[in-house]
Design a protein around this nucleic acid. Structure first.
Lengths: 132, 132
DNA sequence: CAGCATCCCGGTGGATACTG
DNA sequence: CAGTATCCACCGGGATGCTG
């Protein structure tokens, strides 16, 4: 709170938390960092709806992903509190992945983005360059 | 529509457009690609609210950005229909940047993400690892 | 089955200098 | 003022091989 001083509603609908320009910016940037990664979304969507999936299920369900990548992205999501990891102590090993409550809560937010994307044609996005 | 066949509501709130898992996934992925880039958000937030800013204003307002980066990100946003570029033919040159209508419409969607992020503590995101 | 270690390549973004 | 051009470092991500 020591950087910019403008603090009016950059985000109209925010009623509880007031954002400064900077706080809003690095808020979304943090979020994007969480979700960044070639396979995060595929994983997420496979897990939305409270589904639990084993490592090997995900591996099969996501064509093209390598084990390294799959585990890497899963671990990041887990570290960030989005994904839950459930270890069954058995031989052979069995590990399941699911979403945390917070992870589930991401769904509507992504939906908002999807809706925005869908508006693209309706609003004139490609007006070409304006002249003055 | 030739890849996966599961097509139930991955996104509960979507009433108009039905998404398959794949279409939803690369929907959000496209969106993230649009918004990806070290300076996009700072720019966006400086422009939210219909504000117009000159190149040099943005340059000063965004500490740390180089001209190359600033122009690069602005051009990408423009090409993607998010930012408008208004050229005033004068000497010395004057160019202003603003958001398109669609660009403006991004605001509430980002707000949804911010709200999600804010819920993090309230919902138990960091439960540690579950055992079974 | 689930996961870690290593090597390598390409693209993104940064610094710097020049131009209409 | 508003860019363009070049050169370079970094790291995300892919391939491959090994282990508890």
């Amino acid at each position: 709170m020591t950087r910019t001083h403008e603090k009016v509603g950059y985000l109209p609908e925010s009623k509880e938390a007031q954002h400064t320009l900077d706080s809003a910016v690095d808020g979304v940037e943090q979020i994007f960092r969480l979700l960044e990664g070639r396979w995060k979304f595929v994983i997420l969507f496979h897990l939305f709806g409270g589904k639990l999936k084993r490592f090997s299920e995900l591996e099969r369900a996501i064509p093209g992903v390598s084990q390294k990548m799959l585990i890497q992205q899963l671990r990041q999501l887990e570290a960030d509190g989005i994904v839950r990891r459930i270890v069954h102590h058995q031989v052979p090993p069995k590990v399941e992945y699911g979403l945390t409550e917070w992870g589930q809560a991401l769904c509507p937010a992504l939906d908002a983005l999807l809706k925005w994307h869908a508006q693209r044609e309706r609003l004139g996005a490609g007006e070409g360059r304006a002249k003055a």
